[in-house]
Simulated assay, not measured.
Amino acid sequence: MPLRNRHGVPVDPVPFVVVVGLAFMILLSFGPLYGQALGLSLEAGIAASVALFLVALTVAFHRQVWNADPEALVPAALRAERLFYLIPILTALIVALAVPLLVG
Rank of each mutant, 00 (worst) to 15 (best):
P88F: 05
F30P: 07
A98Q: 15
V50T: 06
F30C: 08
V95H: 04
L40P: 01
G35S: 00
I87P: 01
G31S: 02
N67G: 00
A68S: 04
L90C: 07
A23K: 07
P75H: 12
V19A: 14
P10G: 08
V65R: 04
A68H: 05
A51I: 08
L38S: 10
A47S: 14
F24A: 15
A48E: 03
V11Y: 05
F16W: 15
P75S: 14
P100W: 10
P88R: 06
D69Q: 12
V14P: 02
A68C: 03
V50D: 03
N67K: 12
D69C: 03
L73E: 15
L42G: 08
V17G: 02
L38F: 15
L42A: 15
A77D: 13
A92K: 03
S29V: 08
R63N: 07
V74I: 14
V9P: 03
G8I: 12
S49C: 04
G31H: 03
A51E: 05
H62M: 08
V14Y: 12
A47F: 11
V74N: 08
G35C: 01
G31F: 06
V18E: 07
V14I: 11
L93A: 14
H7T: 04
E43M: 11
V9T: 14
V11W: 08
V55R: 07
P100L: 09
A98I: 12
P13G: 07
A23D: 11
L93I: 15
G21R: 10
A60M: 04
G21C: 07
Q64P: 00
A37N: 06
M25C: 03
F61G: 07
P70F: 10
Y85G: 14
F53T: 05
P100M: 09
G8W: 14
E43A: 13
F53V: 00
L90K: 09
S41E: 02
P10W: 10
Q64T: 00
A47P: 05
L78F: 08
T58W: 13
V95C: 05
F30I: 07
S41Q: 02
T58M: 13
N5R: 12
N5Y: 12
L52M: 13
M25W: 13
R82L: 13
V19W: 09
P15S: 07
H62K: 10
V99Y: 05
R79C: 06
L40V: 03
L93H: 07
G8K: 13
L83D: 08
A47I: 07
I46H: 13
H62W: 14
L38W: 14
S41V: 03
R63Y: 12
L28S: 09
T58P: 01
A92Q: 01
G31R: 09
A76S: 09
A76W: 09
L86I: 06
T91E: 07
F24C: 08
A51V: 11
W66V: 01
V65C: 00
G45V: 01
V17K: 12
L27P: 04
V99E: 09
Q64K: 06
A60C: 01
E43G: 02
M25F: 14
Q36T: 07
A37G: 08
N67L: 15
P10Q: 10
N5D: 11
V74H: 06
P32A: 00
